[in-house]
Design a protein around this nucleic acid. Sequence first.
DNA 1: CAGTATCTTGACGTGTACGTCACCTAATGG
DNA 2: CCATTAGGTGACGTACACGTCAAGATACTG
Lengths: 135, 135
Amino acid sequence: MDASKQTIYTIADLAAEFGITPRAIRYYEEMGLLTPQRSQETQQRLYDRSDRARLKLILRGRRFGFGLKEIKELLNLYRVDTGEKEQMRRAIEYGDKHIAEVDEMIRELQETKEEMLEFRRRFERILAGEEDGAK
Amino acid sequence: MDASKQTIYTIADLAAEFGITPRAIRYYEEMGLLTPQRSQETQQRLYDRSDRARLKLILRGRRFGFGLKEIKELLNLYRVDTGEKEQMRRAIEYGDKHIAEVDEMIRELQETKEEMLEFRRRFERILAGEEDGAK
DNA sequence: CAGTATCTTGACGTGTACGTCACCTAATGG
DNA sequence: CCATTAGGTGACGTACACGTCAAGATACTG
Ligand SMILES: [Zn+2]
Ligand SMILES: [Zn+2]
Ligand SMILES: [Zn+2]
Ligand SMILES: [Zn+2]
């Protein structure tokens, strides 16, 4: 039971590192996505590596337009009791759905990129004089 | 100048096709992302294939968490006057930035998927009894 | 001709994700 | 000792993306 010598972050540390405000981090906690320890006397929030990892996942989810509710589900998905086999089986099942979602997003993004490149190529051709601006 | 015989959609057509509400479509117009024709007498909005294509792009952007402002910028990016060479050069330049953004998103999503698969594999191993639930 | 459906323009309401401010509590530095 | 800094808890404000009426015009339908 050696619980010492862990890296500890203050709320300002994490806010600075990820370019967000402490308010946002507290909000994620309000919504149940983070549960940092508190210093017994001052009630200060103390984040460890695992909290930091969770925050990283939250922010990644946010960047891709996920709501906090779904992100919370995902976080809990990979936090199941590895002793409860039935829970794990369900986690795998739900997880597969999300993996499929991510796959679909990757496909859509690649399609998007291809379309942007097509525009780019067309513009380049026009600039090179091989085509004019007429429809 | 043959401008007839075009496919025309009503607002309800598009709403049904894309699984959104007419209100959302009107909102995109309010924000300047769509400018459908109007029937001269009834003021009814009439969408053509190009409007439909724009709407498709809007919804794709939304799914990836982009705000309407940035989506509008992107739409205008590929709508430059192909006669104005300087405009096109700037369009290519801005476009490249967005392509890089999309690339970065693809990378992040692939990383995300890999992490999810790692969890999945770990769960499978535990279920197979090769590992127990202890830390 | 009355009813239902589909569109229009306001106008106000709502959920999410925070921003901002007031006020309070420690710890630190000159 | 007093000011600054860093953190805490409400509580209210705000931007965005719509949802949800209300009221009116028009068109098809039995
Ligand atoms: Zn999902
Ligand atoms: Zn961008
Ligand atoms: Zn001192
Ligand atoms: Zn009839």
